[in-house]
Design a protein around this nucleic acid. Structure first.
Lengths: 343, 343
DNA sequence: TTGTATGCGTTATCAT
DNA sequence: ATGATAACGCATACAA
């Protein structure tokens, strides 16, 4: 069915090498032979065998991207951006889902799919501090996340602490004092959850306030359902609140939904802030104030760093563990609007 | 760096073929040699070279999934389900984005990535009726969409007409008569847009009603922003409406947002129905009545049909163009609740 | 500028 | 049950 270079060579009356030269845009080929080859290619409908090329070249032209769940808006939007950035560099992206489960995150590092890709962009969320040694892998990898977990692995971080702090300060600036914290994290974890919580507590402390644990709604999985459940948990305790800081946007959206069920209005009764700036947050009712963590920059930078390692050859095989922290921006929207003074 | 089967064979004192037998779980290997080989593999940290295996086998173990945009919730949720179904069958999924642009949809069929995958699950949205011949490709493919476009290509369809009709009938049953249609489609297209619109018009006709074109809000791209814009368009015309049928959920969510901006309440003033049943629709405010098109079944069936073609060998290479239509279900939620009688 | 020969790592065919 | 050896299709020294 499918033809090979040999077939093309035969038809064009040249050698296989010449066909290869034409296909790979080798500069030194006479125009006449080039057209001869190209017409033969066209005539046979020849397409390169990727497996053979990979075997010979020792590289596949594919990058892996490991994320918790593709259906979480943050990660689907990130994936979109990574795919686009990789495409610009001539790479194809293979997405793997870890489910946010530690075991599966570790599996990703040893997966059979590692042999199908030239490098990995890895966004772990369930790894513990003790897992750091396991990240000392032999293949090119770029981590998405903060340094805490890993030492020598290059990574692209978001300003989790500073972003959450800015978000909290914004709530404080609008006069809110009884802020609920929605979403929790593995106590042994070192992911975004603990860092954002840190930023939250920092802002409170700086304002001379303390966080009442009764205002924390737990939920390790970060989706709308757990956001709603966590909010319900806090409300059921009968503790007063005038604001909510959710550890990410979907948690915030779930929490808003729950506030609504309880007859509380946002932002009049309760102000709400999220983290991630997913597209949905611009269209929710009310629209959600959130931290834009610089996701496009993160995607682009991660791909660039990885491709650089790939093309650098043996030279910079073990760099100094480069770190880039993306710039964040607080997107103020309706969910934290000041209560109308004339009331 | 990475070791080969030869290295393993040498260390274990056996032949390459034996190592291959062990790795591929070939039944006839003596327990002693198996353990010898396995320890050698373990000791060397051997991992199979996927490119070499693909070259030899003539198959890659990868399936391609081409969707418009990964960041559209419907497609990210679909992708998740396709990946899971493929994994169960031992396949890896490569996602391609077409942007919903006809040219890029056609490119997918000739893409270099076709040579990296064993088959394609293709969800076209911008192809025209005249493009049907271009879908007569030589590689295994399963289409997501209705038959209109393609004759001999196997495909998995959703009940676009019936679903939209049921949704519209639901609106009519709750006493709504002035229904706006949000979202439009390429007039030459044969995709979900025209079919859902057909179902909408069918239901109206069956009820002896006619659709006022002034109640159609156009928007070829289906996202929140266009949903809001289309709604704005209708409202600006000053035509009365008491309900909205949006061609999908994100359009509906954008439209609801716009209704809110105009001081209209859902469902009291205007009832709203979407199509797709994305997770967000269960948590929006109000929660969105929508058509659940059987997406999980679609994902599973598409993978099964494709894998079947792949493993059937030459035998059923050209089947009769199998068609499966998934079962839909109308999810009634708050956005179409009956106005409280006591008003 | 173009052709020849060899290797990439695995599977498959045939022996034994 | 296991081993030797030839494909698989392409890239690349090296030669011409």
């Amino acid at each position: 069915m499918s033809s090979t270079m040999r077939d093309v060579a035969r038809l064009a009356g040249v050698s296989v090498k010449t066909v290869s030269n034409v296909v790979n845009h080798f500069p030194h080929v006479s125009p006449t032979t080039r057209t001869k080859v190209l017409t033969a290619i066209d005539q046979l409908g020849y397409q390169m065998n990727h497996a053979a090329r990979s075997l010979s070249l020792g590289r596949t032209g594919m990058l892996a991207l490991a994320v918790p769940e593709l259906r979480l808006p943050y990660f689907s939007e990130l994936s979109d951006e990574v795919i686009a950035a990789a495409q610009d560099r001539g790479y194809t992206v293979l997405i793997e889902q870890t489910g946010g489960v530690r075991e599966r995150e570790l599996e990703v590092l040893a997966s059979e799919r590692r042999r199908m890709t030239d490098g990995l962009i890895f966004s772990p969320v369930a790894l513990r501090a003790g897992d750091a040694p396991l990240l000392e892998v032999s293949f090119p990898m770029v981590l998405l996340g903060e340094r805490s977990l890993h030492s020598r692995v290059p990574h692209v971080a978001m300003a989790n602490v500073a972003g959450a702090r800015a978000a909290t300060e914004h709530l404080l600036a609008t006069g809110r004092r009884r802020i609920a914290l929605i979403g929790s994290f593995d106590a042994e974890g070192v992911g975004a959850g603990s860092l954002r919580t840190q930023g939250f507590l920092d802002a409170l402390a700086a304002a001379g306030l303390e966080h009442d644990p009764a205002r924390t709604g737990s939920g390790v999985e970060w989706n709308r359902a757990t956001g709603a459940a966590a909010m319900r948990q806090v409300l059921s305790r009968g503790v007063e609140i005038d604001a909510v800081l959710a550890l990410n946007d979907v948690l915030a959206l779930g929490a808003m939904r729950e506030l609504f069920e309880h007859g509380l209005s946002v932002p009049q009764d309760v102000a709400v802030v999220g983290f991630d700036d997913i597209e949905e947050s611009r269209f929710s009712r009310p629209s959600l104030t959130t931290v834009e963590p610089g996701r496009p920059q993160i995607a682009r930078t991660a791909v660039e760093m990885l491709v650089e390692r790939l093309t650098a050859g043996e030279s910079a095989a073990q760099g100094p563990g480069q770190e880039v922290v993306a710039e964040f921006r607080l997107e103020v929207r309706e969910s934290t609007a000041l209560p109308t003074p004339a009331r």
